Simulated assay, not measured.
Amino acid sequence: MGLLTGILGLPLAPVRGVLALGELIRKRVDEELHDPASVRRELEAVERARAAGEISVEEEAEAQQRVLGRLTGAPSGRPVRRTHDRKR
């Protein structure tokens, strides 16, 4: 039965290979997006851009929120709330 299943499943081998490759790429992207070193590099790049006058203070704050939101898992459309920002 294993030989028959192998022969009949042979046409699907490229599909399985593409799916496995896609899964490997997804895992690598997730690791890169949530890697603290990567986040730090991006935050430093934002700081350098602000210091060079390439972006405004508001754009810097938005970029920082996006990067930190990625690290904390917050949705990208919503800002990350800090403890001192909460309304009581």
Score class of each variant (00 low, 15 high):
residue 2 G to N: 09
residue 2 G to W: 07
residue 2 G to I: 11
residue 3 L to T: 14
residue 5 T to M: 15
residue 6 G to W: 07
residue 6 G to N: 12
residue 7 I to E: 06
residue 7 I to N: 00
residue 8 L to Q: 05
residue 9 G to W: 10
residue 9 G to C: 12
residue 10 L to G: 13
residue 10 L to Y: 10
residue 11 P to L: 08
residue 11 P to Q: 13
residue 12 L to P: 04
residue 13 A to S: 06
residue 13 A to G: 01
residue 13 A to R: 03
residue 14 P to S: 02
residue 15 V to K: 04
residue 15 V to T: 15
residue 15 V to L: 15
residue 15 V to Y: 09
residue 16 R to K: 10
residue 16 R to T: 06
residue 17 G to L: 05
residue 17 G to S: 05
residue 17 G to K: 02
residue 17 G to W: 01
residue 18 V to S: 07
residue 18 V to G: 03
residue 19 L to G: 00
residue 19 L to F: 05
residue 22 G to V: 07
residue 23 E to Y: 08
residue 24 L to Q: 09
residue 25 I to Y: 00
residue 25 I to E: 00
residue 25 I to R: 04
residue 26 R to E: 08
residue 26 R to D: 13
residue 26 R to G: 02
residue 26 R to H: 07
residue 27 K to R: 15
residue 29 V to R: 12
residue 30 D to G: 02
residue 30 D to H: 13
residue 33 L to S: 07
residue 35 D to G: 03
residue 37 A to K: 08
residue 38 S to T: 15
residue 38 S to E: 11
residue 39 V to A: 13
residue 41 R to T: 07
residue 44 E to M: 11
residue 45 A to L: 10
residue 46 V to P: 00
residue 47 E to K: 07
residue 47 E to Y: 03
residue 48 R to T: 12
residue 51 A to P: 00
residue 52 A to Y: 06
residue 53 G to H: 09
residue 53 G to R: 14
residue 53 G to P: 04
residue 54 E to V: 06
residue 55 I to Q: 04
residue 56 S to Q: 08
residue 57 V to F: 13
residue 57 V to M: 08
residue 57 V to L: 13
residue 58 E to R: 14
residue 58 E to A: 09
residue 60 E to N: 01
residue 60 E to A: 07
residue 60 E to D: 00
residue 61 A to E: 10
residue 62 E to F: 11
residue 63 A to N: 00
residue 64 Q to R: 12
residue 66 R to D: 04
residue 66 R to F: 09
residue 67 V to C: 04
residue 68 L to C: 00
residue 68 L to I: 06
residue 72 T to K: 02
residue 72 T to N: 01
residue 72 T to V: 07
residue 72 T to F: 12
residue 72 T to D: 04
residue 73 G to P: 09
residue 73 G to E: 06
residue 74 A to E: 08
residue 74 A to W: 04
residue 76 S to M: 10
residue 76 S to F: 11
residue 76 S to T: 15
residue 77 G to W: 11
residue 80 V to N: 02
residue 81 R to H: 14
residue 82 R to Y: 14
residue 83 T to I: 11
residue 85 D to L: 05
residue 87 K to N: 03
residue 88 R to M: 13
